[in-house]
Design a protein around this nucleic acid. Structure first.
Lengths: 134, 134
DNA sequence: CCGAAAATGAAAATGATTGTCAAAAAGTGT
DNA sequence: ACACTTTTTGACAATCATTTTCATTTTCGG
């Protein structure tokens, strides 16, 4: 429904990587929107509740969001340089998690799996001198 | 060296699960220590830097720590009821993560993997009526 | 015991996130 | 268009974990 929520979704769609609420707020304001920070947070909560965006925590505890292409269960390969994220699947991991849980008598088993690395572009940028960011 | 740091390490050893800095501070004060909150945070940073404790983030962004038995790379199976954690290994997962990274041209690949579930005790406690906590 | 360096902790600062609440917007039936 | 209810919005204050600051205390080598 709401326009604001759509605006946030859009802003998220324009990025290949994970963005924080504060990032998105800055982006939207930069392009002229009069949206408030509170609304960005609320929109992200909604979008997450309805499963339209994925969320994860950075090392320093900040929540970052991403609009993912697939609805189905997946994980991410995230570049720690530019933040770019690739959606990946790992059937083997799913089975492993289930099995580990079962072995120890745990039920309702879920898991969080994220893979981090330096993407080819960032590695190249870093190697060729300055270490600039894209 | 420092006594305070040892105290924090001890407090951590007494728990089977992950504890937050605030939890540990409360524990230590409860048993009569005059330690300050700041020192608990500093001790945990040190312990983490030296690899003596593992850290992860709860869903609401709080950092929680655990003194692990093994020095080697491992993951955790955590009970979302009582917080109890079991150290587990997943060679298959390590290989998968490496391979996924390589496939997409990523280098210096690392990963975070945590498995959550309800342990047998908590499931039983929940089933037998009240849903009490241990 | 003396002084330098490290450790400590109280209180203030930071920064993300959430709560409050009144104003603005969107609907709804007339 | 109109009065009226419901939802959405956003400025601002409040929360809460974590970090900084800084003066004091402790630890140690000599």
């Amino acid at each position: 429904m709401s326009t604001r929520r759509e605006a946030v979704k859009q802003a998220l769609n324009h990025s290949t990587g994970f963005r924080s609420a504060q990032d998105l707020y800055a982006d939207l304001r930069a392009e002229g929107s009069k949206i408030g920070l509170t609304t960005v947070y609320r929109a992200l909560q909604n979008l997450h509740d309805s499963g339209e965006v994925d969320v994860l925590r950075t090392d320093d505890g900040e929540a970052v969001y991403r609009a993912c292409a697939t609805e189905s269960h997946h994980h991410h390969l995230v570049c720690r340089g530019c933040g770019k994220a690739v959606e990946v699947e790992g059937p083997a991991v799913e089975k492993w998690a289930e099995s580990i849980g079962a072995q120890h008598g745990f039920t309702e088993v879920t898991h969080t799996v994220e893979v981090f690395g330096t993407c080819a572009e960032c590695a190249a940028a870093c190697r060729e001198g300055s270490g600039k960011r894209t």
